Simulated assay, not measured.
Amino acid sequence: MRRDIFVDDSFALGGFTSGREGIWTRDSADMPATADYMELSAALGTSPERMVRPYQANGQRAAVVEPRHGGSGIIKDNEPTKTDGLVTAHRGLVLTVIAADCAPVYLMDREAGVIGLMHCGRQAAAGELLRNGVDCMVSLGASAERIAMIIGHHICRDCYEVGEEVCKEFADCFTPGQLMEIFAVKDGRYFLSLSQALIFKALELGIPGENIFLRGECTCHCTEFFSYRRGDRGKQDLAYLMMK
């Protein structure tokens, strides 16, 4: 198992792990938490009943979760479904999302006592997931100008080749100058930087540049992580964030 910590202070604990087996989902609702969740919960000093995993859809929906959601997606089937972002104002509730190349985005407003964790793939980077997550945080008392944002491990631009149709999707959301920083073109092939797109989105939402941190390695380059683009199937990495 590789487990990297991105934040560990008096306010929050957040990181990213491959797990020992890379299996975070169950085959049926009556199955217990996977061994990886059991091992991670023990390492965090908590239990699966205090952790939440949404049923992700590579979409734009973010949801506020509370203690009643504890165990969702891990030891029981419950809300939230078709959701790629979680937000909470409850201490000790561990937000988790699975990823195997997409970018985990960690959001924290220490003054308001609100955190969020987003699973940002191509659709989210071009869409409204980050905005929806920030809106959920604001509804709980957070403020965009106080939010600290960390972009964790994800596939890098050198590895993330996309089709020309993806460039056209992004052209509807970003300026020509921004597109030049988001995409690299090599021999007529297009390569996408998720992190650069997410940084532009965050700045547009009012998150200060000095509050945005890029901590990630490339999941495709680094063989200690699982990567869909590299060929891993049925195994993923997990991002997690907990307010202490």
Rank of each mutant, 00 (worst) to 15 (best):
A144V: 14
A144Y: 08
A144W: 06
E145D: 15
I147T: 11
A148T: 15
A148G: 15
A148S: 15
M149Y: 07
I150Q: 08
I151V: 10
I151R: 14
I151D: 01
G152C: 04
G152I: 05
H153D: 13
H153G: 05
H153P: 12
H153A: 08
H154Q: 12
H154G: 10
I155N: 04
I155Y: 02
I155E: 07
C156E: 06
C159M: 08
V162N: 00
V162E: 00
V162F: 00
E164R: 04
E165Q: 14
E165L: 09
E165W: 08
V166Y: 02
V166I: 14
V166P: 04
C167W: 02
C167M: 08
E169G: 04
A171H: 10
A171S: 15
A171W: 09
D172C: 04
F174P: 04
T175I: 10
T175N: 11
P176F: 11
P176Y: 12
P176G: 12
G177S: 14
Q178Y: 13
L179F: 03
L179M: 13
L179W: 05
F183W: 04
F183P: 03
A184E: 03
V185H: 00
K186V: 02
G188C: 00
G188N: 01
R189M: 03
R189F: 02
L192N: 00
L192F: 00
S193A: 05
L194H: 10
Q196W: 07
Q196H: 14
L198R: 13
I199C: 13
I199S: 09
F200L: 04
F200C: 05
F200P: 07
F200K: 10
K201R: 15
L203Q: 14
L203M: 13
E204Y: 15
E204G: 15
E204V: 13
I207K: 15
P208T: 09
P208L: 09
G209Q: 11
G209V: 08
G209F: 04
E210N: 15
I212L: 09
I212V: 14
I212W: 11
F213Y: 08
F213M: 11
L214F: 04
R215P: 03
R215G: 03
R215D: 05
G216L: 08
E217A: 14
E217S: 12
E217C: 14
E217Y: 14
E217M: 11
C218G: 03
T219D: 01
T219E: 00
T219F: 01
